[in-house]
């Protein structure tokens, strides 16, 4: 079982903060809206714990989009957006059909997750490549059946909120990585800190 030290958490949180700041600006520009930034929460946990955390989310149904990223730092980004936010997004973008809305969520996910992981990888001196994002609407009681989670045992969860207050659009982004990537990440985080001390 891997654990992150306080220093490793701090470094990853700050790198994520920098990456997320740039990501938010891109999405805010796309939506012509202002987002408030929150401090990312970072934890290593078993997938069973992650799934039980998902169950604590308030809404009963979420749109759920994932995108795999590959490289030295590899894993999967997951973006959750609740139904109310999806409807608010549709109103904000003046979308009329469900197809348009699916397309907008996919595009939002693509921009969010690819910008975020690209920036995060860049801050760590590496690069990542991507698969196409896929989207599904998942009732929370079925979340454990989502294929993406079944390939992981232990994951590092970087959880941050997308929050456009005026438009009432809220989402949550998770970056999930596997054991080999966690080991690579720990080494990298310590190198970054050691270079400053």
């Amino acid at each position: 079982m891997y654990n992150l030290t306080e220093d490793e958490k701090d470094v990853l949180q700050e790198l994520m903060n920098v990456a997320y700041g740039s990501t938010t600006a891109v999405v805010a520009d796309m939506l012509d809206a202002f987002a408030s930034l929150s401090i990312p929460n970072i934890e290593i946990m078993n997938v069973s714990q992650l799934l039980s955390n998902f169950h604590s989310l308030k809404n009963s149904s979420y749109f759920f989009a994932t995108q795999t990223f590959n490289g030295e730092f590899n894993g999967e980004s997951a973006f959750f957006i609740d139904e109310t936010s999806v409807h608010n997004l549709a109103t904000h973008l003046e979308l009329e059909s469900d197809d348009d809305l699916d397309d907008a969520i996919l595009e939002l996910t693509n921009i969010l997750t690819s910008t975020l992981t690209t920036k995060l990888a860049h801050e760590m001196g590496t690069a990542v490549s991507y698969s196409l994002p896929c989207i599904s609407k998942v009732p929370l009681e079925d979340i454990a059946d989502v294929e993406a989670f079944q390939q992981y045992t232990q994951v590092i969860v970087i959880d941050t909120q997308l929050n456009f207050q005026d438009q009432k659009i809220n989402g949550e982004i998770f970056i999930l990585t596997k054991d080999d990537s966690i080991q690579w990440l720990k080494t990298k985080l310590n190198t970054i800190l050691e270079e400053l001390i």
Partner: peptide, 25 residues
């Protein structure tokens, strides 16, 4: 010194009296 590079964030801190807004790091 912030990761938040949204135009509104920059405007707001200048309105509050900051001399400069600089992107991290």
């Amino acid at each position: 010194v912030s990761a938040d590079v949204q135009v509104q964030a920059k405007q707001r801190v200048i309105e509050l009296g900051a001399q400069l807004h600089v992107q991290k790091p």
